[in-house]
Design a protein around this nucleic acid. Structure first.
Length: 920
RNA sequence: GGGCGGUUAGCUCAGUUGGUCAGAGCGUCUGCCUUACAAGCAGAAGGUCAUCCGUUCGAGCCGGAUACCGCCCACCA
């Protein structure tokens, strides 16, 4: 127990201290006891390119809740942290920095200037130097991420922190690459890829973002070779016509039947092109005839393969026209477009120009329009890998939650294409391949080869391409645990139990981890995959820097405290829907933290007043480690409020366990919120207040104190996964005897030895209803500042007995002077009678203050409400079909409810009558 | 073009197997500085659960259609 508890709840003085303490104590390292059940989750590694945003904070909060909850269930938990080198993103940022340095004297330089100049700076400084800069950048920024995670209270094992370019990790990447290559699952070749001219690299299909943009559809005439007319083709990209090697029509299209097999002349360049028939062509679109550019369109590439068409590359990697483009050589692709159109128009071959909405592929990183072109790249065959990955999800060996994402996953996996894994970037995993200068042999090997195995030549050039970031991330669940070595961690923690990630990386990462895990570990990487909601701002807009609607986690955390932010995130996160998030929400959960603080203050302040021996005794009575709270007494020896709160605690614990098992964070958070505030504080604490504030006589600890401290401890534990800091702080201040160094390693389930106690709950509710009814009556009669007496009537002697037994509590909590009890029905009275429940009525003895009209209004309202409920009930009970078909208990329930309501209704009518006729 | 999600109180949203489910927080109104908490306490008002049709004894909850809003996928010249 520590010094007096501060009056004001100030998270900033609590949180950083515990954040450090937890790390120093290495609390979140799993033990070496392999016999203990384990639970493992590897972090979705944040990119080192940036500091963490609110989306990360949501993800980490959800993960940490699960992690802390499992740990408190006695499992040996590993949450493995780490970061991703984020090849393309990091390279861009570092280039941008280089550019900014180079342009530091130019105040007008924009970000895109920085990028452009930065790119040439990179080329100037060379690969080695540039990589040094990247590493330096990583050292600086990786630390930011770690500090932020610490501040969030993420209970990760920092001793196992990993980075996707750690030497050991690089070995794993090389091993995977080599094995896949040897099996023929990785191949190299010149195929159609998405090329980003700005980034100067190929990107995968997933990295292409389709955007709808207004554009044009141009119809161009290709004259027939024999001068007999022309064929019109439509295109949105006229500059690619320079690379046309055919015109295609649908074989069933009557209009063009005669044209197939004949030849047309490509305008501007005069190349002669065959007219071919291919069923890919949709007669309904455009003119029904298409120009075929096998080198610059994926469809045309496919057509070209089927018809053996030449591939003429007219656009280069800088998006400029090549020598093949003849007079247009050297022009930028869009300048070339203008020139082509102008020349076509001049020659009268431009038939039509229409406005057209088109969807263009842009680079995920820089939003430059990507150019499909032919390029020699490394590809991974997907089919052999995707099939098992589909099967494990279909068979339920991996559960994807919420369920609808399962279908999304299966749909996507069902039509997956080969993956272009090579990138023309410097920052990243270098592809372990060498090219023989002498014979052009490609050698893929784990280490640098000395000579070409084919021609024995020694002039070998290392491959300059690097791998897509996601290639290495795909290995994360096992490479972080030491693969390819057969480490103890790998044996113990693979497969991971769950993976929690955002939908945006389900295909990039989730699917690929499943494929790689199955391929190299012969088992799933994780048993459950929970897709968390996406965080949006208060207007449901995506949070983005450009929109300026981002909330900085550090800022919000500083202002309201991490616990409040965590709780706000958790309670706003039902599975499957996006979250509209705002500071207002955080504010109301800071109020909750404050409430917890004050409840603790109340308890601890009064505890101080107990004699020292009693406090020690109280501490030593505290929970048995691993077992939780031992029963203080048999239930029949407990007071009503204690029986009630123990019963509620039990139910709440079960509900939370159930909710968290289904990732229903909002439900679990709401459950404990309501329990702590509206049951524990509003009712239990108020109820036992006199016994807690009273100085005890004798030297035995009052039972009320034992129960209170236990319940409070239990509530803190249930709260801990959500609000780790405040609960840790209070747990250390409150009496406790366990050997645990932290609440985070105590047991979550402290109420298991009790059970739900419906009888006690029922009795408690009766008393509570009476108190509420009295408060209502007082408020409505304007007696809130006074202490009227009241009369309670009930048909049931046991009810009266119950009230009589708790008379003092009722008087105190309802603010009444005296109660008298009667078995008479309160019919003879004039007014102010209020029905508490079916067999209990209450009347304030304060008639002189009764406003007859206000009373009548209230009663009329009540009557209306009753009738609204009675109507449908009567209809239901008058329905033979309902009586015969509905389950018996439902019918019985309806009858009972009907009886109750009718009785209340009748009493109400009587009361209204007693008020006399309304004034004219 | 295909698929998915949303439409419930002034605002933001809960509501897992159809029968006390019409809820919470914030906001609003009333009364309280009751010595844990005014970041609080005690009360109150407010919704034909988007619209229409269907299944059922019974539907925010299941099925279909419509209207808006949003997202994802896509080789639509």
């Amino acid at each position: 127990m520590e010094a007096e508890i501060p009056k004001v709840y100030s998270p900033e003085s609590i949180e950083p201290r515990w954040a450090r303490g937890w790390i120093e104590q290495k609390l979140y390292r799993p033990s070496d006891n392999v016999a203990r059940p384990r639970f493992c989750l590897v972090i979705p590694p944040p990119n080192i390119t940036g500091s963490l945003h609110m989306g990360h904070m949501l993800e980490h909060t959800e993960i940490d809740i699960i992690i802390r909850w499992r740990r408190m269930h006695g499992e040996d938990v590993l949450w493995l942290p780490g970061t991703d080198h984020a090849a393309i993103a990091t390279q861009m940022i570092v280039e941008q920095e280089l550019g900014r340095e180079a342009l530091k004297d130019d105040p007008k330089a924009t970000k895109s200037d920085w990028r452009r100049v930065g790119q040439s700076e990179r080329l100037k400084m060379g690969r080695e130097k540039f990589l040094e800069r990247c590493w330096k950048w990583k050292e600086e920024n990786g630390g930011t991420i770690r500090r932020q995670m610490e501040r969030l209270g993420a209970s990760v094992d920092w001793t196992r922190e990993r980075f996707t370019m750690d030497p050991a990790y690089v070995r794993a990447v090389v091993e995977v690459f080599v094995r896949l290559y040897e099996e023929g699952l990785i191949y190299r070749g010149k195929y159609m890829v998405n090329w980003c001219p700005r980034c100067g690299t190929a990107v995968s299909d997933l990295e292409v973002i389709h955007e709808d943009r207004p554009g044009h559809l141009w119809t161009i005439r290709y004259p027939c070779e024999d001068g007999s007319g022309y064929i019109s083709v439509a295109t949105t990209r006229p500059e690619t016509m320079l690379g046309d090697t055919a015109v295609a029509v649908n074989p069933l299209d009557e209009r063009y039947r005669a044209a197939v097999g004949r030849r047309v002349v490509l305008p501007l360049l005069g190349r002669v092109l065959p007219v071919i028939a291919d069923s890919f062509v949709d007669p309904k679109l455009g003119t029904g005839a298409v120009k075929v550019t096998p080198a610059h369109d994926p469809n045309d590439f496919a057509i070209g393969e089927r018809h053996n068409l030449p591939r003429i590359e007219v656009i280069d990697e800088q998006a400029r026209m090549t020598a093949e483009a003849g007079p247009y050589q050297g022009l930028d692709r869009y300048k070339a477009r203008e020139a082509v159109l102008k020349d076509l128009a001049d020659q009268g071959l431009l038939e039509k120009t229409e406005d057209y909405q088109l969807s263009v592929g842009t680079c995920q990183r820089c939003r430059t329009i990507v150019e499909p072109l032919l390029s020699t790249q490394w590809f991974m065959k997907m089919r052999p890998l995707s099939e098992p990955a589909i099967r494990v999800v279909e068979e339920g060996r991996i559960r994807i939650l919420p369920d609808n994402y399962r279908k999304v996953y299966l749909d996507w996996m069902g039509r997956i294409y080969d993956w272009c894994v090579s990138r023309q970037l410097w920052w990243g995993h270098r592809i372990p391949a060498w090219h023989c200068d002498a014979c052009s042999e490609v050698i893929v090997a784990r280490g640098t080869p000395i000579a070409c195995p084919k021609c024995k030549g020694a002039a070998l050039r290392a491959e300059t391409d690097t791998l897509d970031t996601w290639f290495s991330s795909a290995l994360w669940p096992f490479a972080t645990l030491g693969w390819p070595e057969a480490t103890a961690d790998l044996a113990r923690f693979y497969p991971n139990d769950v993976m929690i990630m955002g939908f945006d990386i389900l295909f990039f990462w989730g699917a690929r981890m499943i494929m790689m895990g199955l391929k190299f570990m012969h088992d799933v990487p994780f048993r459950e995959l929970y897709i968390h909601a996406l965080l949006r701002d208060a207007e449901r807009q995506k949070m983005s820097k450009t929109k300026g609607n981002v909330l900085d986690p550090l800022e919000v955390t500083e202002k309201y405290g991490t616990d409040a932010v965590r709780f706000a995130l958790a309670i706003s996160a039902p599975p499957g829907t996006d979250i509209a998030f705002s500071k207002d929400k955080v504010e109301s959960y800071r109020a909750f933290a404050n409430k917890i603080w004050n409840a603790a203050r109340f308890i601890l302040m009064n505890l101080e007043k107990l004699p020292e021996p009693m406090r020690e005794q109280l501490a030593s009575l505290q929970p048995i480690p691993g077992l939780g709270v031992e029963p203080v007494a048999a239930p029949e020896h407990l007071a009503l409020a204690d029986r009630w709160i123990y019963s509620r605690l039990y139910t709440v614990t079960c509900q939370m366990d159930e909710a968290l098992a289904g990732y229903r964070f909002h439900e679990a958070a709401y459950t404990i919120y309501h329990f702590f505030w509206h049951e524990f504080c509003d009712w239990y604490l108020e109820w036992v207040k006199p016994e807690i504030t009273r100085t005890p006589e004798g030297n035995k600890v009052p039972p009320a104190w034992i129960n209170l401290t236990r319940i409070f401890q239990a509530a803190l534990r249930l709260l801990h996964p959500f609000m780790p800091f405040i609960t840790e702080e209070l747990w250390h201040r409150a009496p406790r005897a366990g050997p645990e160094p932290s609440i985070s390693v105590t047991a979550f389930r402290t109420a298991t030895e009790r059970a739900s106690d419906p009888v006690s709950e029922g009795q408690f509710n009766q008393v509570r209803d009476l108190i509420v009814a009295a408060r209502n009556a007082k408020a409505e009669m304007g007696l809130q500042t006074e202490k009227p007496s009241a009369q309670v009537a009930s048909d049931d002697p046991r009810t009266l007995e119950l009230f009589r037994a708790h008379q003092e509590t009722i008087l105190r909590l309802a603010g009444l002077r005296a109660l008298n009890f009667t078995r008479e029905r309160l019919e003879a009275e004039v007014a102010g009678v209020r029905q508490v429940n079916q067999d209990t009525a209450l009347r304030l003895l304060h008639e002189e203050r009764v406003d007859a009209e206000a009373e009548r209004l209230r009663l009329e309202r009540e009557k209306q409400r009753l009738e609204q409920q009675l109507g449908p009930l009567e209809k239901q009970l008058g329905n033979d079909a309902f009586l015969s078909r509905a389950p018996e208990d439902v019918v019985r329930g309806a009858r009972q409810r009907h009886a109750e309501l009718t009785q209340q209704h009748r009493k109400l009518l009587e009361s209204i009558e007693r008020l006399g006729p309304p004034p004219a």
